[in-house]
Nucleic acid binder design. Structure first.
Length: 217
DNA sequence: AAAACGGGGGC
DNA sequence: GCCCCAGTTTT
């Protein structure tokens, strides 16, 4: 597996490629950011950004969304995958935040995960981005990159990937590392045809070297 | 551990 | 057309 030192080297190279890594979801309030992240499950950020302005224009606060008709919410997010489940979940979550949390998005991963439709990944991203809670959300990009670089073993479970990353990256850098890896995975180390020939990390990447060797044959 | 949910986008 | 996408929930 890739050593701690080389993991940090790899991360530095990624940061040089994406120096201003941030989430790409648009939102004006913590609540809207939570909803945007919930909607982004198995959907592209672009498709979410297309729907959320209309949604938030109609229902901008937890209280407003909590009162909304579920069918109306559905219509506003119909262009996003899994829209039926998501409509139900964001309404329920809005109700819970409106009543149980006085309209404020809860600030801990544990509380966030109690909300319907919020799992570990959404909770980690939201807590990290909104409340500076040290967290690494292991989404599909982070998992793929961690395995290609052998930061963890290829057979690692999501939990094992997270543990390995937390072990090798200083806590203060978890949130930024997450965003940096997302962008690197989204635009360069893509799932199907990773751009290994132009990759600054090739010297550190076992799988990339194997891919190039295979290509040469 | 695997299936179900699910429309949109890249190739 | 097929595969993947800032996953969660149920089986």
């Amino acid at each position: 597996m890739l050593s701690k030192k080389k993991t940090l080297e790899a991360l530095e190279l990624m940061k040089e490629m994406y120096p201003d890594a941030e989430g790409e979801l648009r939102a004006e309030t913590p609540f809207q950011y939570l909803v945007a992240v919930m909607l982004s499950a198995q959907a592209t950020d672009a498709s979410v950004n297309k729907a959320t302005p209309n949604l938030f224009e109609a229902y901008s606060t937890p209280h407003a969304l909590a009162q909304a008709d579920e069918a109306d919410i559905r219509d506003l997010i119909r262009t996003i995958g899994l829209y039926k489940t998501k409509a139900k979940n964001i309404k329920k979550t809005a109700q819970e935040i409106d009543t149980t949390y006085q309209g404020q998005v809860p600030t801990t991963i544990k509380e966030l995960m109690k909300l319907p439709g919020v799992g570990q990944k959404t909770a980690n991203v939201v807590a990290g981005d909104l409340f500076n809670v040290p967290a690494i959300a292991v989404d599909t990009h982070v998992e793929r990159i961690s395995k290609r670089l052998r930061i963890c073993k290829k057979s690692a479970t999501l939990q094992e990937v997270e543990t390995e990353l937390m072990k090798k990256i200083p806590k203060e850098e978890w949130v930024l590392a997450h965003h940096t890896m997302i962008l690197f995975g989204r635009y360069h180390c893509v799932a199907r045809s990773p751009k290994c020939t132009t990759c600054p990390l090739i010297e550190l990447c076992l799988e990339g070297q194997q891919r190039l060797k295979k290509q040469a044959n």
